[in-house]
Design a protein around this nucleic acid. Sequence first.
DNA 1: CGCCACTAGCTATCAACATAGGTATTTGTG
DNA 2: CACAAATACCTATGTTGATAGCTAGTGGCG
Lengths: 197, 197
Amino acid sequence: MSLRYAILAILTAAPLTGYETAKRFEGSVGHVWHAPDSQIYPELRRMEAEALVEGREERWGPKGTKTRYYITEAGEAAFRSWMATPLKYAPWRDVAHMQAAYFEWAEPASVRMHLKQHAAHYTEQIAQWSSQIEAIRSHEHPMIAARLERYPAEQHERIVAFKAFAYEGLIRLAQAEVDWARSGLELLEQLDGDAPA
Amino acid sequence: MSLRYAILAILTAAPLTGYETAKRFEGSVGHVWHAPDSQIYPELRRMEAEALVEGREERWGPKGTKTRYYITEAGEAAFRSWMATPLKYAPWRDVAHMQAAYFEWAEPASVRMHLKQHAAHYTEQIAQWSSQIEAIRSHEHPMIAARLERYPAEQHERIVAFKAFAYEGLIRLAQAEVDWARSGLELLEQLDGDAPA
DNA sequence: CGCCACTAGCTATCAACATAGGTATTTGTG
DNA sequence: CACAAATACCTATGTTGATAGCTAGTGGCG
């Protein structure tokens, strides 16, 4: 159900075609929520059937047409109501930590590789998200720019602050992953120091 | 596919019936990986068909029988090979952060509630995982006790260290969530301080 | 002996997501 | 004008996971 609300969220900034929506989920929004186009097209149609969005046919060149989806009042209401509802916290499911619990089944070299990869992956994520935050704060981010145009100036501070806040949370998490992986490398040295090959 | 390896992982400590396996996924292993019994029973049968586990019928009272699953050589090999394989990092999907990015659509009181709930949830998680770590380090944890009995003493240190390490990672993440939620509450005070109701 | 919680095992259905294909049109470039 | 790249849209299939049910035997208690 979250995909639906992610779609509604980006449609509050600007009406989009299915294709554009899918692109957003590869790029900016994709940093917080990922979805393939094969999920997005049918979901948009379901949402249209429920009157949360309205699809308007547009000409596209001499022969083609495309559908641009506009969020409706009902759609905004649904989004607002979701925003007011407390989240259900799903039970944990984390492969990396699950695997780490059984590292005694892997070669020390393999463990080292896993941990280094883990740190590298999240370090890269931090870099990406940091540059997103900068673009958000400077209003250079295209989605932010479109959104700010649509809403009155007194809301701009909140809009920007919350987007940046969300990314800051992701960065905190990623930093925790990096720190954990590093502490794992230290642990490994300790264990192998005690009983070297 | 991860469910399969989670099952293999716990079967390396002791052979289990389907029911016992399901119980593990509600309790201890469930902290890192959750799965309902409706997933576990068919998965065990699939794994038996692929010879990763061997099911042995056991009497259970005068009329009943139950199947206890033993990990096979092939199962151990599959697990070891998975342990040596680098993980694929799935694209991000996080409802709480997605929702936070659009907090301007919620009432400040509602945002405050969300953030407090978020902090409370992960604080509770930290408490649970911390007590797990204690039980692991003191060897009081039943799964750890069973596991240590099965493996030679020189491996005990690693077994315990890696289990504790995994939980430490979860605690780091949860702590990051709590810190983030608290910083969100501060941000909210700032924003509402600028323009109070 | 009746009752109940627990153990044991199983099924059916649905939503969510991944993967991998497909067609057709437009637009820009050499 | 040929061609590639991008735009636009769609489907089919399989896996995973969530939800909710079901039957039936065991073991302990009053």
